[in-house]
């Protein structure tokens, strides 16, 4: 592990470190265009590629991505579509197969994750040599917009429960804006089986247990689609099941 890290760092001095940004999409026609514009705006002196993993959106997301390829170049934006909705975990795996970067960033396409934070993820990784940098909403300079009291309450309750039971070592378990060293993500994505929110939690808990170095940076989270983040009873049950699953398997 240590040797590999040194090797990466010395390699970084000769050759520029490359980042692959994986964005899974489903019906994000407008948002994917906006997010790609913002990525290119905020990552000026960085070598990177954007990998859009589209799950057969019927709204023409893929047409927009092709238009964006004309503007930014087909080598900078890769469209790696799948025939239908196949879930988040496999979307990362699928994107990862095509990634050529040394590091992989994963972010949501709905603009709740703003690309302006990408430089701080990269800076944090360079400063600390971390294997994973995860965005956290629950610290100073981070935050959430667009949640009602009920949503905040469930979120805090879920977090306290997970912190007490799992001792995960990170403050935001269910956030999905993260930067991974590529080999680390390859390792994690094959050992995580959960779905939805629990998948994000499983990834970061397994990472801590495997002894990977995890660092945090503050991010803000703007929930624009009202109601999308409503947590129903079934989500809460899934979350509790996920907690128990992680208690017994990690």
């Amino acid at each position: 592990m240590e040797e590999r890290k040194d090797e990466l760092q010395t390699k970084g001095k000769e050759k520029k470190i490359k980042y692959s940004i994986i964005v899974p999409t489903y019906n994000e026609r407008l948002n994917i265009a906006l997010i790609i514009y913002l990525i290119f705006k905020h990552l000026r002196d960085v070598e990177f590629e954007v990998i859009v993993v589209d799950d057969g959106s019927p709204d023409g997301t893929q047409d927009i991505v092709k238009q964006l390829q004309q503007v930014y170049g087909e080598d900078r934006i890769l469209l790696r579509a799948r025939p239908r909705k196949l879930g988040l975990g496999t979307a990362y795996y699928h994107g990862l197969k095509h990634a050529t970067g040394d590091f992989v960033v994963i972010m949501d396409a709905d603009l709740s994750h703003h690309p302006k934070y990408l430089p701080s993820f990269i800076r944090k990784q360079k400063e600390t040599g971390a294997n994973i940098v995860t965005g956290t909403r629950y610290v100073k300079n981070g935050g959430v917009h667009g949640w009602n009291l009920m949503r905040k309450l469930t979120s805090r309750g879920a977090n306290v429960l997970a912190q007490t039971l799992l001792w995960p070592g990170v403050s935001d378990l269910t956030g999905s804006f993260r930067l991974y060293e590529r080999s680390v993500l390859e390792d994690l994505v094959t050992s995580c089986v959960s779905k939805g929110y629990v998948f994000q939690m499983e990834m970061i808990v397994r990472a801590t247990r495997k002894g990977y170095h995890v660092e945090e940076v503050p991010i803000t989270f703007v929930d624009r689609v009202f109601g999308s983040s409503k947590l129903g009873g079934s989500e809460i049950v899934e979350y509790l099941k996920g907690l128990v699953y992680l208690l017994f398997t990690t």
Binding site: Y138, V139, K140, V144, R156, G157, N159, F221
Partner: peptide, 14 residues
């Protein structure tokens, strides 16, 4: 949970 709710970081300017 109470502390978390009282000091829940929000970002309307964002």
């Amino acid at each position: 949970v109470g502390i978390g709710l009282m000091f829940f970081p929000t970002c309307p300017q964002e």
